[in-house]
Design a protein around this nucleic acid. Structure first.
Lengths: 367, 367
DNA sequence: GTGAAAGCGCTAACAG
DNA sequence: CTGTTAGCGCTTTCAC
């Protein structure tokens, strides 16, 4: 009895509200006159089933009979229904979105073509898993702290971190918190605590140095990336180890991923070691700059000086000659990172997970 | 009486639910053991007010007395409360997020450093307005149609469109719909119907050509961007108009924004017009390539051939000599685009709005 | 100025 | 397999 009364009341209220709404909409200004989107309630009515059944259908259709399922699907099509993610998220207590955190000052990162592959692949992969990729940028330390708090406040289900610098405060606020995160590149100081994906920089460089050595090169120099970024750091470490006793500080030029720094690096190396016969450059873009400078100095590539790059980005095939380089499996890393993140979000993964993918030697004309 | 009964019932239910929840949490597995986030209900209890009052406070604090307001704020701090956007969005019928749509195949766009400024500035501006910037990429035409439908399905409040190509299907599915959109660059075919922001490419090129002419240059060539992108198209139009009767097809080399196409373009121009004494290049990156090629051909810059770029991106100061160029007010355009979009979303703006910002001539060493 | 309560649209027990 | 119903956390009338 009580129940019946309640339902009556509810129904009455609903009707009134609906009328008011229609009134509102009818008098609304031009553009926004579209009627409200259909809800599962509408679908349920049209299909002649309960809301729960509709919900089941749009969530995989398990435990629903064939005909009911068909009826629901038909109603969905007819009404052009599409689920309201906000409502779903409220009910499931998930936001349905993950952050892509850019910690570096904007300018730098975006000059790197790799970055584009990363963000686009992540976005597509997240969308494939029915989620949203939300880009969040924080340059200065203060806003990084702010961002870390924001992220932890439950506005996103997890976060993907673009390569972070050695001393950035971002990870301090995130590591050990309960927000699932996956870092691109091995995060300094938090390598154990935080999940990450990375190409095996160390092994990659050993491999390419071995290749250069096997081709008879004896005086192999290098141009590094930024050493406060894990890619820059580990590629130099790999070089150092590969050279072993032949390593000398003067064989190292310090770059910052930019084309220009490749040029400057090559020039300096040539000055210090006119006899050098090969250079391993830590990114293709820099390698392009290095080749230019070598040419200017009258060296032929690869006859006089062999040049090997890293990444196999678009830059690798726009040099003359095209670059011999290590392929950086960025798209795959991005997909794996998203997979790892969702596993953590879904609670299928407890502790931190670390994934190191092998690169591949791509032999072209420069070495 | 009826009311009282209802409340009683509600209260009882609440208590039971809460107990169950606590039980659940206590038995939950390790990591996710954190207690649930405080809600406005908790804040209300602690502050000794109603949920409505809390809501008022966190939404501007209007119509709330000083002391209640203070009490609420104190409770908020104490409980480390932060609003649940999902719940708010459900109640307000807004998603709180806007899409940043990348229609181009990923590779291309991300080589453009401009693009980074755009997306980062948009993200920061949207966050400043309490929203989220969701990146959505769609390369092939089929997925573009899919994306257009998705966007219109109400999953976002509006969309910012990265520069679109002349014949992309994306806009066909979006223009005229009821989803607010703002395009970066003047959208072909939809210039009237769709809101957009753009630098005044046409005027910019006239200005820089006037500058070159004033410096005594008589044979001014150009290297264009992609003509199926509005920036590329209008810069060529500006060049054409500025040259007037002196315009000749052979003075035009067609590029694609890439460094390499700048090199090739300069080489071709030099071949066709050995007498040329100036080149207007439609992007700084290409200008860098052009300078390289000119040097190779033995021309001094700017003594023999003046080179002017466009964008004033980082590339402009890493050339030798640094580039004379037109500053592209990208960050400002991004902020204005977000402002326009929110105005449309908030219903403060009806028809499409178009904003063209003037560029600024930056004189450095190359011209 | 403030509180009560009705939703927002969906999911997830819980019965049956 | 299917329907009922109690929330998810917040906003927003509507009274007072």
């Amino acid at each position: 009895m009580r129940l019946a009364n309640d339902r009556e009341r509810e129904t009455m209220v609903m009707v009134v509200v609906k009328q008011e709404k229609r009134l509102l909409e009818a008098t609304a200004v031009g553009k926004s006159e579209r009627l409200r989107r259909p809800t599962i309630r509408d679908v349920a009515t049209v299909a002649g089933v309960s809301r729960a059944t509709v919900s089941r259908v749009i969530n995989g259709g398990h435990y629903v009979s064939g005909d009911k399922s068909a009826a629901v699907n038909e109603a969905i099509d007819r009404l052009r229904f599409s689920v309201n993610h906000t409502a779903r998220n409220l009910a499931t207590r998930r936001t349905g979105s993950v952050a892509f955190v850019i910690s570096e000052a904007q300018e730098g990162l975006f000059e790197d073509p790799n970055f584009g592959v990363l963000i686009t692949t992540c976005s597509m992969e997240v969308m494939r898993l029915e989620g949203h990729l939300v880009v969040m940028a924080a340059g200065e330390p203060s806003s990084q702290v702010h961002l870390a708090n924001y992220l932890r406040a439950g506005h996103v289900d997890g976060a993907l971190l673009a390569p972070t610098f050695r001393d950035e405060p971002l990870l301090d606020g995130l590591a050990g918190g309960d927000l699932p995160i996956v870092s691109f590149g091995r995060p300094f100081r938090y390598e154990k605590e935080v999940s990450w994906v990375s190409v095996d920089d160390h092994a990659a460089v050993r491999q390419i140095i071995a290749y250069l050595t096997s081709r008879g090169h004896r005086s192999i120099a290098t141009i590094t990336g930024p050493l406060n970024l894990s890619g820059g750091w580990w590629r130099l470490e790999g070089y150092r180890e590969a050279l072993g006793p032949r390593f000398r500080e003067s064989l190292v030029a310090y770059g910052d991923w930019s084309y220009e720094s490749g040029r400057v690096g090559a020039r300096d190396l040539l000055e210090r070691h006119p006899e050098l016969d090969a250079i391993f450059v830590a990114s293709d873009l820099m390698a392009g700059g290095a080749i230019l400078e070598l040419r200017r100095a009258g060296r032929r590539v690869p006859e006089d000086v062999a040049v090997a790059g890293f990444d196999d980005s678009k830059a690798a095939i726009s040099t003359e000659p095209p670059l011999t380089t290590m392929r950086h499996p960025l798209a795959q890393l991005a997909r794996e990172a998203v997979r790892m993140l969702f596993a953590m979000i879904d609670g299928q993964q407890d502790g931190p997970e670390h994934l190191m993918l092998p690169p591949e030697l791509i032999i072209r004309g420069s070495a």
